[in-house]
């Protein structure tokens, strides 16, 4: 084996390793499309989400974190949205009232993006929704 062919082989191995997502995708049967999320079930006559969907998609985690801090550390429970509506800062009482099924609303997308939120370390998953994992070992 000449050094030229050894170098070509090394380069080939590098490209093959680099193409890992491609052949991993070919081998996997999982749906690569973004998961469909369950539509919010409006149980108490609430009108729409607290903020618009695009904003919520990108910023919900930050909002929930702020709520957590505000409620747990400052005892402040009222939040005013950008449209001026007041809401109770509560994951179970406000968010999950409409997004009742955590399995089809939260988990699907978090699994897709490989995110492990710590919500369910403290919060109880309401009936109908399933745990996001990480709870079973408690």
């Amino acid at each position: 084996m000449t050094s030229r062919s050894r170098i070509a082989l090394g380069l080939g191995v590098f490209f093959l390793l680099g193409a890992y997502p491609v052949w991993n995708g070919l081998a996997s049967s999982a749906d690569p499309e973004r998961p469909e999320l369950a539509r919010a079930v409006d149980s108490a006559g609430a009108t729409g989400c607290i903020e618009d969907t695009t904003w919520m998609k990108a910023n919900h985690q930050k909002l929930l974190n702020e709520w957590r801090t505000s409620v747990v550390r400052d005892g402040q429970r009222t939040w005013v949205s950008s449209t001026g509506t007041s809401w109770d800062m509560s994951l179970t009482g406000t968010c999950l009232k409409c997004h009742a099924n955590t399995e089809t609303f939260c988990t699907r997308c978090h699994d897709y993006a490989d995110v492990q939120p710590t919500c369910w370390n403290c919060h109880v998953v309401p009936e109908g929704g399933q745990s996001e994992g990480g709870q079973s070992h408690e």
Partner: peptide, 27 residues
């Protein structure tokens, strides 16, 4: 400034699956 990460993943994964789709609303 957060962006819709699921949308970003949808784009990235569609590229490596050679079936490109461009989701709307990525920053």
């Amino acid at each position: 400034s957060h962006t819709d990460i699921a949308g970003v993943k949808e784009l990235a994964i569609s590229l490596v699956h050679f079936s490109p789709t461009v989701p709307v609303g990525i920053e």
